[in-house]
């Protein structure tokens, strides 16, 4: 059974017919070609599939596509500036060396964006608590938290 939905993904409007059982991550990756959202645990636990839905960090592997009908969605592809310029949070991850294999990185960056949008200057404890929602299998957590601190210090992370 299908549903007709409207999505605004990275400021582009899409009208898509989805099966009721289809997950948002599959629409993003397989229909729209946005491969930045990764499928890790496929249970909404690891956060590799995190995208922003109306600004909220959301596990796209465990969200039915119809549930976000009409929503504004931001994927990692949507952060790039003119001529591929890095977003301040991406730049901070680069400066802090906050990635190893990189599989968790898109989800981590979007999770950090959602924090900085709400609280532009979080302290380290707040960053640690918020970023604890996602898992890095390389366990590079210190650099990830450092990166969010760097982004917060610039005041441009949100």
């Amino acid at each position: 059974m299908t549903e007709q939905i409207e999505l605004f993904v990275n400021d582009e409007e899409h009208f898509i017919t989805v099966d009721t059982s289809e997950m948002l991550v599959d629409v993003l990756r397989d229909r729209l070609g946005l491969k930045g959202a990764k499928i890790g645990c496929d249970r909404g636990v690891c956060g590799a599939c995190t995208v922003l839905v109306n600004g909220d960090p959301t596990a796209s592997c465990s969200t039915f596509a119809w549930r976000v009908d009409g929503a504004r969605i931001v994927t990692i592809e949507g952060l790039a500036g003119e001529e591929g310029a890095l977003d301040p949070v991406q730049q901070a991850f680069f400066e802090a060396g906050a990635l190893q294999c990189g599989y968790c990185t898109p989800g981590m960056i979007l999770l950090a964006k959602s924090l900085l949008a709400r609280n532009p200057h979080p302290d380290r404890a707040e960053i640690t608590d918020w970023m604890g929602a996602n898992i890095c299998r390389c366990t590079g957590y210190k650099m990830i938290i450092d990166a969010v601190e760097i982004a917060a210090a610039t005041g441009e992370g949100q």
């Binding site: 956060g47 909220d56 960090p57 959301t58 596990a59 969200t63 929602a133």
Partner: peptide, 8 residues
């Protein structure tokens, strides 16, 4: 849980 869980 965590912030993603608490928001959903």
């Amino acid at each position: 849980g965590n912030i993603r869980v608490r928001m959903a």
